[in-house]
Nucleic acid binder design. Structure first.
Length: 490
RNA sequence: GAGGCUGUAGCUCAGUCGGCAGAGCAACGGACUUUUAAUCCGUAGGUCUUGGGUUCGAGUCCCAACAGCCUCACCA
C-alpha cells in the first residue's frame, strides 16, 4: 500500500527529531508575492562561459508539494499555495546531511516551509534555493494524478479539498464567489442598507412556493420548517421602521437537484421603504456591476456558448410583449393561450387562465431570454405579495431578471394593504396545489401589515446562479463548496 | 419519480468476438548537483461498485441494487 511507505517516512521523521505535523510558522510570504520579487534580483556578469552571478532576496514560503524531481543529491520540488506555485531547489551540500535526511522524507502532497534565496536556475526558472527546510504536515494519502488532477465529478465534490488544491481555477472560482458576495454587501451597505439576521426556523414556510424541510422542536413540541425565503420577516422589519434592510442568507427547498438547483442555496433579499420595483431595477444593476468590478471582469462574459453583455441599463420588456413575441399568440387572447397550452400538454381544465398562461410562458419564453432582461408587469393573479399597478389592476408591479434563460432576480413593489394581502392569502388560485402556492396564510404577518408597512420595493437575487453566470460555471455545484450528495455507504 | 450514460490499481484511463487483468501517473529499489509533466534500469500494486443469473468459461452478456453525471419531471 501507498500508505505504508508514507507512514515509514512519518516514523523516519520522528526518529530524526522532526515533528511531521509542524506548528506555527511565522513570517512566510505568499508565493504570488514572492514571485513578484523577481525584479529585485541583482545580476552581475559571470565568468567566461558561465551564467551570470545573481543575488536575490531572502524569502520564506510555505505550501503543498505538487511536483518533485529527484536528481541524485538535488531535489527540485514545486510547492503551491493559494496564490501561486514556485520551484524549490534543495541540494544535499547546501542544506547539510541532517536536513537532507528530512528532505528525503518529502512526498507529493506534503506541506513544507522553506527559507532560502530567490534567484534563477541555469535554465532561467525562478526558484527558491533552499537553505532551511521546515516540515509542516505529512500527507498520508497520495495525491491525484499529476497531469489531469481529479476529473471524476463525484470525487471532486466529495473531496472538495483535493479539487481546490489540484483543480485548475477552482480556488479562484470560489474566491471570486466570496468577492462577489462581499461586493454586493459593501454596495448595499454604502447605499444605506443594513444587514440583519432573520430566523431560519419558521413555523410557517412562507414567502415563496416550495416544499420545505420539516423539523421539530422538542421543548416546545412543535413542528418547524427550514425557511424557503427571507421575505416575510424582512417586511416585518419595514413595519418596524428599518427603512433599508437586507439579508444574505441560506434558504432551503426540499425539491429536486439539478445543474441549477441545490436543496440549500444563498439568497439575497433587499427591501427599501418608499421605493418601488423600478428602484429595484436600478439597485439590481448597481449590485451586478459592483460584483463584476470586484472580480475584474469587463466586457461580455462567456457562459457556455452564449455571450452575455452586462452593460447597463439592462433591457426592460413587458411580460405580455415577450409572450406575444415568442409564442405568436397575444397574451390577452385566452382562447389562443389555451390552445397553445393544450398543444404543450399543459393541463387547462379548471385552472386559472393566468396560471395556464404562466406555464406557457415558462415553457416557451424563459429559455429564450438570453438577457440580461427585466421582464416586467406580471399577471397580478400569480403574484400574491405584489402591489397592483395603478393603471391596470390586472398587472402586478413585478419584474424578474432573466439571464441565459435563468431567473436571477425577482422584485416587487411590495403589497402593503393588509386586507388585500389577507384576501390573497385566502384565495387559492383554481387548480393550484397547496405546495405550489405561495399564498400561505400567515396571521402574524397580516397583523404586522395592519400596523402599517411603508410602501416599498423589494428584491431577491439568487446568489449562486449569479455567481454561476459571472464565473462561467455551467453547474450550481461548481459554485457551492459542498453541494448535497448522498452519503457514502461504508 | 422516469429515461439515458458511466463505475476496472491511490489517480487518469484502455480492455476487440465471452477465453491468462493492461498502460500512464503516483509508490518501492537503483543511477544522476540544474531539473521542470525530468530521464534511465528494475519491482510491486486488482473483491473489475455490490448481489444474483446465463455459460465449460463473465471485466465483457442478462437481471437487480448502490453511487455519480445528463435529460425530463419537480422547482415563480
Amino acid at each position: 500500500m501507498h500508505e505504508e511507505s508514507r507512514r515509514a517516512k512519518l516514523a523516519r521523521l520522528e526518529e530524526l527529531g522532526v515533528d511531521p505535523w509542524g506548528g506555527r510558522f511565522d513570517g512566510h510570504q505568499a508565493i504570488g508575492a514572492i514571485r513578484a520579487l523577481e525584479e529585485t534580483i541583482e545580476s552581475s556578469p559571470g565568468e567566461e562561459g558561465k551564467p551570470p552571478n545573481e543575488q536575490g532576496p531572502q524569502v520564506r514560503a510555505a505550501g503543498r508539494v505538487v511536483l518533485q524531481r529527484k536528481a541524485g543529491k538535488l531535489i527540485f520540488a514545486d510547492i503551491r499555495d493559494w496564490t501561486g506555485q514556485i520551484q524549490l531547489l534543495i541540494g544535499r551540500k547546501q542544506v547539510g546531511d541532517d536536513s537532507w535526511a528530512v528532505a528525503e522524507c518529502v512526498d507529493l502532497g506534503d506541506i513544507i516551509g522553506v527559507d532560502g534565496e530567490l534567484k534563477h536556475t541555469r535554465t532561467g526558472e525562478l526558484t527558491i534555493f533552499v537553505e532551511k527546510l521546515h516540515y509542516l504536515t505529512k500527507s498520508i494519502e497520495p495525491p491525484p494524478e499529476k497531469h489531469k488532477g481529479l476529473t471524476n465529478p463525484e470525487l471532486r465534490q466529495r473531496m472538495r479539498y483535493l479539487d481546490l488544491v489540484y483543480g485548475d481555477g477552482v480556488v479562484d472560482r470560489f474566491l471570486d464567489r466570496t468577492k462577489i458576495v462581499s461586493a454586493i454587501r459593501n454596495s448595499l451597505t454604502s447605499s444605506g442598507f443594513v444587514e440583519i439576521e432573520g430566523p431560519t426556523l419558521h413555523s410557517i414556510a412562507g414567502g415563496a412556493a416550495a416544499r420545505p424541510f420539516t423539523t421539530h422542536h422538542n421543548a416546545l413540541d412543535i413542528p418547524l420548517f427550514m425557511r424557503i425565503a427571507l421575505e416575510l420577516h424582512l417586511k416585518r422589519l419595514l413595519v418596524g421602521g428599518i427603512e433599508r434592510v437586507f439579508e444574505l442568507g441560506r434558504v432551503y427547498r426540499n425539491e429536486g437537484i439539478s445543474p441549477r438547483h441545490n436543496p440549500e442555496f444563498t439568497m439575497l433579499e433587499v427591501y427599501q421603504a418608499y421605493g418601488d420595483y423600478r428602484s429595484m431595477m436600478d439597485l439590481t444593476e448597481q449590485l451586478i456591476s459592483a460584483a463584476l468590478a470586484a472580480i475584474g471582469r469587463e466586457g461580455p462574459i462567456e457562459w457556455g456558448d452564449k455571450q452575455i453583455d452586462f452593460s447597463t441599463p439592462f433591457a426592460r420588456r413587458t411580460y405580455d410583449e415577450l409572450f406575444a413575441e415568442h409564442t405568436g399568440v397575444e397574451a390577452n387572447d385566452s382562447a389562443g393561450v389555451a390552445r397553445l397550452a393544450e398543444k404543450l400538454d399543459i393541463e387547462v381544465a379548471g385552472r386559472h387562465p393566468d396560471v395556464i398562461k404562466n406555464e406557457v410562458f415558462e415553457e416557451l419564453v424563459e429559455d429564450k431570454l438570453d438577457g440580461p432582461v427585466f421582464v416586467i408587469d406580471y399577471p397580478a393573479s400569480i403574484c400574491p405579495l405584489t402591489k397592483r399597478s395603478r393603471q391596470n389592476s390586472d398587472v402586478a408591479e413585478r419584474f424578474e431578471l432573466f439571464v441565459a434563460g435563468m431567473e436571477i432576480a425577482n422584485a416587487y413593489t411590495e403589497l402593503n394593504d393588509p386586507d388585500l394581502q389577507e384576501e390573497l392569502f385566502r384565495t387559492q388560485l383554481a387548480g393550484q396545489r397547496d405546495e405550489d402556492s405561495m399564498a400561505k396564510m400567515d396571521h402574524d404577518f397580516i397583523r404586522a401589515l395592519r400596523n402599517g408597512m411603508p410602501p416599498a420595493g423589494g428584491l431577491g437575487i439568487g446568489i449562486d446562479r449569479l455567481v454561476m453566470l459571472l464565473t462561467g460555471s455551467q453547474s450550481i455545484r461548481d459554485v457551492i463548496l459542498f453541494p448535497l450528495l448522498r452519503p457514502e455507504s461504508s
